[in-house]
Amino acid sequence: MRRLVSGVVVLALVAGGAFAWIRLFAQGPVGPLPGGHLRGEVAAPPPSWDFASRQPYLLVESEAWTLPYSVSVWFQVHEGRLTILLPSFFGDGLKRRLDDDPRLRVAMDGKVYERTAVEVTDPETVGAMLAPVIRRQFAIEIEGEARPVGKMAELWAYRLDDPS
């Protein structure tokens, strides 16, 4: 029994150490855990974000609060602008941080871009932002406005503008 307890203690220490390492040093999330600070050369925004569409998710880091917080999010280049979509089903950690501080860092191709998140609520715009993401992720084609009906889930949409 004593050996089993010591084994559990060792496992807990290993798990705790891994958790701390991921939260502080991992470049992006590991499984369900958010990661730490995104490293890379801070670059000026490109003339077009279309190159971003090659990847399925966008790696972003919130600048709110004390600990770094990086996650992968649904995104879309809409009318030449980078936009992100946050379904509450994946958690509201990033949304709560953006409420406090809209500054985000975006990592792409080894570079880091500084952006400011501006919430988008117009149903027609949200529908247009959501359509390519839902098609890519879930093989569902949608048309028209996306109106909130959230009982269990909510969707938060943001346009990522130049820092003000």
Partner: peptide, 27 residues
């Protein structure tokens, strides 16, 4: 699915059946 997990109602939702065509990155 859209109502429950994404929290939105859309004007039309159409399921794309079968495997994606070559070059199509959808699931």
């Amino acid at each position: 699915f859209l109502r429950k997990y994404v929290g939105v109602a859309v004007e039309r939702a159409r399921w794309l059946p079968g495997p994606p065509a070559e070059g199509d990155t959808r699931a």
